[in-house]
């Protein structure tokens, strides 16, 4: 296999990239200056070398503990539990949350062979006993996806955490902002109805 085919095959392994797109990306790089290709290679190399999981929260980071865990301005009494590191970015983009995070690295899925022992649950429980900078955790916001498996994961965590005297909350579910009720599916409308609140 020549180097062009090799690079194309590597691109094709990325999510959402098929053979045609992979070939297009390869030829795009070949048309640019060699420096640009080297810059990309260096960036990929640096990510592979430097990025790891934060030993406290499981988020992806270059420093351990990560910047979020080390930030003294963040509220250490609240931890938001998410499935993946990408979910941290999604919540951070809102600019509305100033607490800490914990990345589970998945959700319970018996059919895919993911049990509690495969998730970062032990490290979460360790954080609840006062290892988060001296201030006790008072609330755990469970922000797993609103799927059957995400729901089971939330329930599992709730059963583990609630006896420790920590308040457990779950992200609200319902209609997306700007959406049309007419086009919403039955499950979403039912969830929105059951989670309705006083005006």
């Amino acid at each position: 296999m020549g180097v062009i085919d090799e690079l194309t095959a590597e691109f094709a392994r990325l999510p959402g990239v098929g053979r045609k797109t992979a070939a297009r990306l390869t030829f795009f790089l070949l048309k640019r200056s060699p420096d640009e290709a080297r810059r990309l290679a260096r960036a990929i190399d640096a990510v592979a070398d430097r990025v790891r999981h934060c030993s406290r929260c499981g988020n992806l980071t270059e420093t351990d503990p990560c910047g979020l865990c080390e930030d003294p301005r963040r509220d250490r009494s609240v931890i938001c539990v998410v499935e993946e590191a990408a979910d941290v970015l999604a919540i951070e983009r809102t600019g509305q949350y100033r607490g800490m995070y914990h990345v589970l690295a998945g959700r319970l899925s018996p059919l895919e062979g993911v049990g509690p022992e495969d998730l970062n649950i032990d490290s979460l429980l360790r954080r609840l006993v006062g290892s988060t900078g001296g201030k006790e955790v008072q609330e755990l916001i469970i922000a797993t996806n609103p799927s059957v498996e995400g729901e089971a994961t939330a329930l599992y965590l709730q059963k583990l955490v609630r006896p420790r005297g920590v308040r457990v909350t779950r992200l609200a579910r319902g209609l997306p902002v700007g959406g049309d009720l007419e086009y919403a599916d039955g499950v979403t409308i039912a969830e929105a109805l059951s989670g309705r609140r006083e005006l």
Binding site: L111, V148, E151, L155, G186
Partner: peptide, 22 residues
């Protein structure tokens, strides 16, 4: 949709039982 079964995820034994059948 005929019948959603989201509620099966709100109980671990129900969830495990349904997963076993599947």
């Amino acid at each position: 949709l005929v019948r959603p079964r989201q509620a099966l995820g709100r109980d671990l034994v129900r969830f495990g039982g349904a997963s076993l059948l599947a």
